[in-house]
Simulated assay, not measured.
Amino acid sequence: MKKNLFRSSSLILLVILMNGCIRGYTPDVVLKKDGQPCISIPADEDFFRRQKEFNILGLDIFQTGVGELWSRHYLDSKDHYYVKNQQCLYFNYKFQTNILYDISFFSTEKGDEENRKSTKKVWMRYMRIIKKSDGTLQLLLDKEARDYY
């Protein structure tokens, strides 16, 4: 348990150092018809509504108390992954019900490949998918997801 806590703490510290500040950004998360989440960069991230493209540098999924479940990184210049705001990111992972997930990803604006610092952002969010008594699925986010029992 202490080892996982230390590894998670080390990862968070690494994220903070890489970003240069503590502030993380909040992605949009909605539940799709198939019961899987659509995780995306919010519409208001593009102030002028030009459908700006973003370069995704890495995607990570953690389970609270367990550690990393899945990750994919696109730091190699030949392996770019571009998305527009409000476009679902591709997490190659089957999210299960009643598990507290900590999802995160890193982005820069397309065209900032040279130094990747001026527009780099770290996106983080807690989420949990629950099955209600009537059989429908519900998405819980952040504090609601963490406090659910």
Score class of each variant (00 low, 15 high):
residue 133 S to M: 10
residue 108 T to I: 15
residue 117 K to H: 15
residue 43 A to P: 01
residue 97 T to H: 07
residue 17 L to G: 06
residue 148 Y to M: 02
residue 134 D to Y: 07
residue 141 L to Y: 08
residue 40 S to T: 10
residue 24 G to P: 04
residue 124 M to G: 02
residue 78 K to C: 06
residue 140 L to D: 08
residue 139 L to H: 14
residue 149 Y to R: 12
residue 63 Q to W: 00
residue 126 Y to C: 01
residue 75 L to W: 09
residue 70 W to M: 04
residue 60 D to G: 01
residue 148 Y to F: 15
residue 35 G to N: 09
residue 7 R to T: 10
residue 123 W to A: 11
residue 18 M to T: 08
residue 49 R to Y: 05
residue 27 P to Y: 03
residue 96 Q to F: 11
residue 35 G to I: 11
residue 100 L to F: 03
residue 90 Y to W: 03
residue 77 S to V: 06
residue 141 L to A: 09
residue 85 N to I: 03
residue 125 R to P: 01
residue 53 E to A: 01
residue 99 I to L: 12
residue 99 I to P: 02
residue 128 R to H: 03
residue 64 T to P: 00
residue 68 E to K: 15
residue 146 R to G: 01
residue 48 F to W: 06
residue 52 K to D: 08
residue 48 F to E: 13
residue 98 N to Q: 06
residue 62 F to K: 12
residue 46 D to T: 05
residue 8 S to C: 03
residue 83 V to W: 01
residue 123 W to V: 11
residue 53 E to S: 07
residue 90 Y to A: 14
residue 145 A to I: 13
residue 6 F to H: 06
residue 31 L to N: 13
residue 40 S to H: 02
residue 117 K to A: 07
residue 125 R to G: 07
residue 46 D to K: 13
residue 68 E to L: 15
residue 31 L to K: 05
residue 129 I to L: 13
residue 1 M to Q: 13
residue 5 L to R: 09
residue 71 S to Y: 11
residue 28 D to A: 13
residue 114 E to D: 13
residue 143 K to S: 13
residue 118 S to C: 05
residue 109 E to L: 10
residue 147 D to L: 09
residue 57 L to H: 00
residue 105 F to I: 04
residue 92 N to R: 08
residue 19 N to E: 14
residue 128 R to L: 12
residue 38 C to N: 07
residue 28 D to I: 04
residue 70 W to P: 01
residue 98 N to H: 15
residue 8 S to F: 12
residue 77 S to M: 14
residue 2 K to T: 13
residue 94 K to A: 07
residue 3 K to E: 13
residue 86 Q to C: 10
residue 52 K to T: 13
residue 47 F to C: 07
residue 74 Y to D: 00
residue 12 I to W: 02
residue 96 Q to M: 05
residue 82 Y to N: 00
residue 74 Y to F: 14
